[in-house]
């Protein structure tokens, strides 16, 4: 998508200044939004909080972008059985420790093991389950 000049033809002459002003303003608003106080985590950072807060531990952040560089989608979403939905699996510590879901790799052999709690449980408390920075997905 590319930015083009606004179509002045549809505007009254006296409105052009105002229009230009508002255009500039909107750019500022836009830039402000990007620099502002909103969360700016990486696209595809997934927060999982099905059970964490309830059990007094920080929610999990799964960096999807990190994993997709190392494994094809299929290995987790087909072989290991994660659905295409944040928080859609019933993953908990018991099945991870038993070698299912994250535990298929995070077992000390393929990747570091689960006693490193804080490497996953690293989100600010009360962060809801979400795909972070998911763009254009209309609010529920």
């Amino acid at each position: 998508m590319s930015s083009r000049s606004p179509r002045f033809g549809v505007l009254h002459q006296s409105n052009i200044t105002m229009f230009f002003f508002s255009l500039a303003l909107s750019f500022m608003l836009l830039a402000g939004g990007l620099f502002g106080s909103e969360a700016r985590a990486e696209y595809g950072d997934i927060v999982l909080n099905n059970y964490s807060d309830k059990n007094g531990i920080r929610p999990v952040i799964f960096p999807h972008w990190f994993h997709r560089m190392r494994y094809a989608c299929k290995s987790c979403h087909s072989d290991i059985g994660f659905p295409f939905k944040a928080g859609g699996s019933k993953v908990n510590m018991l099945n991870i420790i038993s070698g299912e879901y994250c535990g298929a790799c995070h077992n000390g052999q393929i990747a570091w093991s689960v006693e490193n709690c804080d490497l996953c449980h690293s989100a600010l408390p009360n962060t809801p389950t979400q795909v972070h920075n998911s763009v254009l997905r209309a609010p529920k």
Partner: peptide
């Protein structure tokens, strides 16, 4: 540490 979803106090960060 600045992304507003990670807890900056987590040592593992």
């Amino acid at each position: 540490k600045n992304d507003k979803i990670h807890d900056p106090s987590v040592p593992g960060l």
